[in-house]
Design a protein around this nucleic acid. Structure first.
Lengths: 211, 211, 211, 211
DNA sequence: TATGAATGAGCCTTCATTCAT
DNA sequence: CATGAATGAAGGCTCATTCAT
C-alpha cells in the first residue's frame, strides 16, 4: 500500500478495498483481472498502481483490512464477558451471519486463504489470524471455567480448538458452495437449513463437548 | 473425458491424472497452465486435447479420480466394522496421513474445491463428496450405537457432523499452510506438533463429544 | 533463440531476422515494439515468443546474424590477399556500400550497439566484433608489410587501429544522420558528397598514414 | 524550453539539466522515464512540464547545454594558439578526460546522438556540432600550417577530418562499452590501457598522418 | 507557480485452444 | 492418432502528459 492510498479519505479507501475484495472473492486471486477490479472500483488502471505496488500488494491490503474487520466488527462486537460460553458462541454465530451480510467478500477470502494454491500468500496473514482466533477462543473457555460454568478439568486448548473448528466450518458454509452442502448434508429436512437451524446445530455441538 | 482417454491403459490414465493433479494442486486451477501440465505429464499439447475437451473437463476427470481414491483408498481401506468408533476415527486419521503421502495433490484439490472462487467447479463434485462423507460417518456412528458403545440418545447426525468437521480440518491441516498453522496454534509445545500429536488431539476431541 | 526457430527454413529465419532488425534499427531497441515487429514480419504475437524467449533474446539473435553477415558478406567477400593495402581498403569501402544497400538495418544496429545506453547489450557481442575487426585489419597490415608495400617500421597495431577508425566512421556515415553530416562537414563542395567522394577521402587518409 | 525555466537561477537550471542528462544517458532516451527524471532531479512531475513542453523539448535543452559545454569547457579551455598541432591534440585529449569526469553524461549523449535510432533527434543539433568541430579542427590545422609546423601541401580538410575521427573515437571509448573494447582491442598489453596510453596512441596516430 | 494524482493507451508476455501435417 | 506450431485476446504493469487544487 503506497502513501497515495493512505492519503485518500478513509471511506474511499474502504470502498476501494471492499470492491476489489469482491472481485477477487468472486473470481479467485489469479483469475481476477486488474482491469476488472479497476472497472468495478471505477478508477483508472494507472490509478490503482499509484495506490498499490502491484496485484499482490493490493491483495495484502485487502487481507489486512479483512483481519481488522474480523477483530473489530466480529470478535469485539458480538461477544460480551457477561455471557455464558454457550451464549457467547451463539452470539458469535449470529454476528457471523450479520458480518457475512455486510462483508461477504472478506469471508470468502478468509476461506480462500486456506486453499493450498494460496499457501504462499497465506504466509503473510495466517500467523496473525491464528493468534487472534486462538486468543479469542481460549479466552472464552477460560473465562467460562472461572465462572464455574464448565468442568475445570476439561482441556482448555482442546475445547477451544473444537469450538473454533465448528465455527470455522460454520463460517465456511455461509459462503462456500462445497461447505454449504457438506454442512447441510448431515441433516435431513424437507427444506433447506435456515440460518437459525445452522446456529442451533453448532450450539448443540458445543453443548455436546462441554456436557 | 473423451473416449480416446478411456482407451489408454489404466496405468497411463492414472499417471496422467496424478501428474496433472500435481501441477494444478501446486499452482491453483487458474494459475496452472496447460503447457506446464503437458510438459510435466510428458504428452503433447495436442494429445491432451484429444483426451479432454478442455481444461475444465480435465479438471473434472481429476476430481472424479480423487473422489474414487478417497472412497477406495481411504474410507474402504482403513476402517473395519469390528472397530469401535474411536478406533475407527484413529484408523481413518492414520489412513489420511498415509493417503496424503501417496496422493497429496488430491488432498490439496479437495481443500481447494472448498474455496469460494471454486464455487462453480464445486457444483460438479460436491454433491457426491458430501454423500460419501455423510453416509460413511453416519454409518460409523449408528454402527457404534448398535454395538452399545455410545449413548443411544446422542443425535447421530450431530455427532457425525462433529466428527466429520474435526477430521476435515485435520485433513486440511496436512496440506494447507493456513490450516496447519490454525490447527497447531491452539496447542503450545516447545516443538512442532507431530502427526501422532495431531491424531491424538482429534481422537480426544471425539471422546469429548461422546463422553 | 529456441528450437522452434531453428526448425524453420533458413530463408524464413533470415526473413524474420532481417525484418525484425529493420524495425529495431528504425526505432531503436527500447522504442521498437514487439507488436510492430510481429506486424512487419507478419507473424502472430504468440509465434514470436515460440521462436525467442523474449525481446532481448530476439535482439541477440539479430546481433549474431549481423556479425555473421559482416564477416561472410563483407570481410571475406570484398578483400583478396592479392590486393595491396590501399586496394584492400578501397574494396572494403566499396563492399561496405554494397553491404549497406542489402543490409542497412544491420549497419544501423552496429552503430547503435556503440551508444552508451546500449552498454549492457553491447557486452554480449562487442568482444566478438572487436576480435573479428582487429584480426582482419592487423592481418591486412602485416600482409602488406610482408609484401614490402609499406615501411616495416610502422607500428602495425597503430596503423590497423587508424584504418579501422576511418572505416568505422565511414560506415557510420552511411546510415547515421549525425555521422553523415560530420563526415561531409569537413569537405566543402557545391553538392553533396557522393559515395565515390567518400571512398576517395578515406583512401587518401590511409595513404596519408602510410606515406 | 519555456520561459519559466529561463527564470530559474542559472545554477538550478544547470542542476536540472545535468541530472536529467544523467538519467537519460544511463537509460537511453526512450527508456528513461519522466518519473525517474523528476525523482532524481527532485522536482515534481508538474514542474517539469512547466519548464519544458514535453520530453523531447527537455532533451533538446540538454543537447543544447551539452554543445555549450563542449565548446566552452573543452575547445576553448584546453587549447591555446601558442601550442603546436600535436600539443593541441594532446591537450584536447587530456581535456576530454577531464571533461568526461565532470560531464560524463553529456559525452554519453554525444555518442548516443550518433546512433541511427536517434536520427530524427540528431537533426536538431548535429549541424551545429558539425560546424563547431569542423571550424575548430580546420582552424587548428591551418594555424599549424601558418606556423610552418607541417607540410603546407597537406590537404587541410583531409587532415582535420582524420584528426577529428581519431579524437571522436577516443571520446567514444571513454564512455561506451563497445568503443572502449574496440579501441583497446588493437593493442595487446598484459593490463588494461590507461588513459595516458590511449592519449599516446592518438597522438602517435596524428604524428603518423603529418609526418 | 508548484504539486502530484489521474488517465488510458501501450508495453512485453502468457495462455487455452485449434489445426495442418 | 499424435504432434507442436500458430493464434490473438487478455494478462499485469508503465508511461508521457494533463489538470484540479
Amino acid at each position: 500500500m503506497l502513501d497515495t492510498f493512505k492519503k485518500l479519505p478513509k471511506s474511499r479507501q474502504e470502498a476501494i478495498l471492499d470492491t476489489a475484495a469482491e472481485v477477487i472473492a468472486a473470481n479467485g486471486y489469479h483469475n481476477a483481472s486488474i482491469a476488472d477490479i479497476c472497472q468495478q472500483v471505477d478508477i483508472s488502471n494507472g490509478a490503482l498502481y499509484k495506490y498499490f505496488k502491484n496485484k499482490e500488494s493490493l491483495f495484502r491490503a485487502i487481507l489486512d483490512h479483512g483481519l481488522y474487520l474480523m477483530v473489530n466488527e466480529l470478535y469485539k462486537k458480538y461477544v460480551s464477558p457477561a455471557d455464558t460460553l454457550v451464549d457467547s458462541v451463539r452470539n458469535l454465530l449470529t454476528g457471523l451471519i450479520q458480518f457475512t451480510r455486510g462483508y461477504r467478500q472478506y469471508v470468502c477470502l478468509y476461506v480462500d486463504i486456506g486453499s493450498c494454491s494460496m499457501n504462499s500468500y497465506a504466509t503473510y496473514i495466517s500467523e496473525r489470524i491464528k493468534r487472534e482466533g486462538r486468543d479469542f477462543f481460549i479466552g472464552l473457555v477460560e473465562q467460562s471455567k472461572r465462572k464455574g460454568e464448565i468442568d475445570p478439568n476439561i482441556d482448555s486448548d482442546l475445547l477451544a480448538h473444537g469450538i473454533d473448528s465448528l465455527i470455522t466450518l460454520f463460517a465456511y458454509s455461509l459462503v462456500s458452495e462445497h461447505h454449504g452442502r457438506r454442512f447441510a448434508g448431515f441433516f435431513k429436512t424437507d427444506r433447506d437449513l435456515t440460518d437459525a437451524d445452522k446456529i442451533d446445530i453448532v450450539v448443540r455441538s458445543v453443548q455436546m463437548m462441554v456436557r
